[in-house]
Design a protein around this nucleic acid. Structure first.
Lengths: 208, 208
DNA sequence: CATAATTGGGAACATCCGTTCTGTGCCAAT
DNA sequence: ATTGGCACAGAACGGATGTTCCCAATTATG
């Protein structure tokens, strides 16, 4: 996934704000005015980028045809938590450049301090977690056997930790991290080289 | 207060539905098309009436400048909605005997009047909807091709309608209902024998 | 360095869309 | 019968709006 430019971030932020304030999407020219773009073609150009990356959808040839993909529309936002990044079994969490990407979630997840990650790819398909799904993770430093956890490998090849989403199985002080994909091999690590960051508590999929 | 004419009632209803469906207000011409008014001036005329009675507000000279007043939106009682029953592709909705089964959902689903169904069995596994998942359904009477809908077959073998969850594909006035399971055959019915009750908007899975 | 790709600006175009004007039929009050 | 208000239809005006074309500046890319 590409990183969003400052302009696109600003546009996304303005669209969300405008929607909440007026209950209708802004026009291309209103967006341009708000983020300091004099030409409608440039707004259109960046809207294409945002649409391609799935941040919004557009109805062709229709005034105010912008529709934000995930988050609730307008009037009363409701409880929401930020989406911290992308995760895919076997790959590190990508830092996300869009701080305004949030999902609306049930209240209790907010109360429990959960965070959200957007699933990239279909590497967790055996658990029926599809590309684009949002997983809700409750922070905790331990987990029972067979639970799906966000695990941080502290002693990997790179010094930086890598976080992955996998099922966890303990065997003495050896730990097996089982991917949710039949074609991927499990990872075996020492218990001391692993830190559980949280446990998967919910999967939320938005259609359309 | 004056009593609203049938036309004004229909317009108000359409505006509310359009807003929920598209996230933006309709244009004058879209309203006219929906309620069977050929002239934009008549729509404008009735919109004036609705505005005068406080049912909505209008921004002057602005495309899609209609905004429903609070009275038009309907209240939002709480953060959870009841699970109405079980559903499985190909089988009717079972009435549920446990009225205490509710799911906590994002606020906007409540505002949009959604209801929830608990998935029974793995007959929708091709869409990665697992046994025990909760599907959130937004009430609407139409759907685009390929969308997953709750469809009511009004002219089935039994006189009572049967509701199923399937992907919908239109072909003239024939409709194909495609199950989400490779081992199940699609159903073909006349468009007049089918009523779309709602569209699948979200899947929520709780772990543990 | 040369070339292409990306990002942006300005203007023009076709259509969308709110508004207004004119006219018609209906109905009740005068 | 005449008047006036109401609900409506059709057409047209003008501004709003999405889209596209052409060109410039910047940044990769070979």
């Amino acid at each position: 996934m590409r990183t969003l430019s400052d302009r696109q971030l600003g546009m996304l932020h303005f669209i969300r704000q405008y929607l909440g304030e007026h209950g209708r999407p802004p026009t291309v020219r209103e967006i341009g005015l708000a983020v300091g773009i004099s030409s409608t073609s440039v707004v259109d150009y960046n809207l294409r980028g945002l649409e391609r990356d799935g941040h919004l959808r557009r109805a062709k040839e229709l005034s105010r045809g912008i529709e934000l993909s995930d988050r609730g529309r307008g009037a009363s936002p409701g409880p929401s938590i930020p989406v911290l990044g992308f995760i895919a079994a076997g790959e590190p969490i990508e830092a996300i450049s869009d701080p305004s990407d949030t999902v609306e979630v049930p209240q209790r997840f907010v109360e429990e301090g959960c965070f959200a990650l957007r699933v990239k790819g279909r590497s967790m398909i055996d658990d029926h977690i599809d590309d684009g799904d949002v997983v809700i993770v409750k922070p905790q430093d331990s987990a029972d056997d067979g639970e799906i956890v966000v695990a941080l490998l502290t002693n990997g090849p790179s010094n930086e930790g890598e976080a992955t989403l996998k099922r966890i199985y303990r065997n003495g002080n050896r730990v097996r991290l089982q991917p949710a994909n039949a074609e991927m091999e499990p990872i075996h690590v020492d218990a001391k080289d692993l830190r559980v960051q949280g446990k998967l508590v919910s999967v939320i999929r938005s259609i359309g």
